[in-house]
Nucleic acid binder design. Structure first.
Lengths: 214, 214
DNA sequence: GTTGAAATTAGTACGAA
DNA sequence: TTCGTACTAATTTCAAC
């Protein structure tokens, strides 16, 4: 379980945008490795090899390849927030002023209590999840810190009463065990997406080129 | 959302509710350990000891204590969903029919594509996050799987365009470096929570004692 | 891609401060 | 409690197949 402290931090924080080309072709064995690693991030490569059913050398090669390729972004410990003193979790839906996304992002980076932030379609522009010591702290954060960011036009806050489930990571093999040969599912070019009965809340005005602007 | 089913899903997956008593008193050193571990879950205990500035033996003791106590819930690998073939992420806000939470939970457990589910205050009752291969799959999931659950009264779906940030885990020390001596922030008993300017979307009817009932 | 052996490292068990 | 050290067990690396 050696951990070369050096390196590995290269990957940007949560950047799903950017980096289109696939470097590594993931086969069934790779997915199996990811499956084991997502439930036990501290397993030794030797034990991993045994569980996956490959040789140690092979496991080392694939393990390293997955890290180098970025398929594994990092290893982390899941902390009990309540035990750590942050018992209150809230979701804040933010409406962002057009063309101020850059500033919004910059401000977010300054807020360590923000655990997650995603840009969404729908009525609001972004959803952020925060962990705080108490409800009052959420209030302070929303009214005094978020509201003071010019990029923030409006917010809407809800509290999380219980986290029913949190899976370490969802993999395609969960759904379709015979996924091995399939490619990452390219959207049919120019095809109409069937949004039939699903109530789809469309993006707010002027958000077309949002991703590029960030 | 009355919960007469005296369920008590006991060891539920993301149970923030339940378990009030603190078993371990976390000091500054414990938090420092958590801080290192959340960024590098695979670091060796020896290296951890060095980074935190304690002896190896001490590091082993504390490390084990944190795991046993549940402050560290598990170690996991963060996977790049796009690379793994699940490039589409969506949030589905669900309105749940009263007294059918148990069924709702049971159904969720059957859906491997669900990465996260939280019960919330506000207009909807729960938010679930799913990872899928394409938009059509989200559509199918919402209209054919979720809609067929009797417990689900209504849904509202938004897509995630970009995940701006995802912190491994937020800790109180991020905010207040001198947190060491503070206790986990008990809410002032009976005190009114100031929800002043914050737009607080209240819980739907009859959700007062939801936490206890789940 | 696999096996097996050497070198290194991790995990454990002690006594001492 | 924490530290330092010695001991044992395990892992990683590297070789040849």
């Amino acid at each position: 379980m050696i951990m070369t402290e050096t390196s590995r931090n290269s990957a940007h924080e949560g950047g799903q945008a950017g980096r289109i080309g696939i470097g590594l072709e993931l086969d069934a064995t790779h997915l199996k490795i990811l499956e084991v690693l997502r439930e036990n991030g501290r397993i030794s490569v030797a034990a991993l090899a045994e569980r996956v059913g490959i040789s140690r050398a092979n496991a080392y090669t694939r393990f390293e390849a997955l890290r180098a390729d970025g398929a594994i972004k990092r290893f982390t410990a899941e902390i009990d927030h309540v035990r750590a003193g942050l018992g209150i979790t809230a979701l804040i839906f933010v409406t962002v002023r057009q063309q101020m996304w850059r500033q919004f992002r910059a401000q977010l980076a300054q807020m360590p209590e923000v655990e997650y932030c995603a840009i969404t379609t729908g009525q609001h522009d972004a959803m952020i999840q925060v962990r705080m010591t108490d409800v009052a702290a959420v209030h302070t954060m929303v009214t005094e810190r978020l509201a003071n960011i010019p990029a923030v036009k409006a917010t809407e806050t809800v509290f999380i009463l219980d986290e029913v489930l949190k899976r370490p990571y969802v993999l395609p093999s969960d759904r379709n065990p015979a996924w091995s040969t399939r490619r990452p599912a390219p959207d049919p070019a120019g095809g109409e997406v069937p949004l039939g009965k699903m109530r789809f809340v469309g993006a707010a005005e002027g958000r077309a080129q949002l991703q590029r602007d960030l």
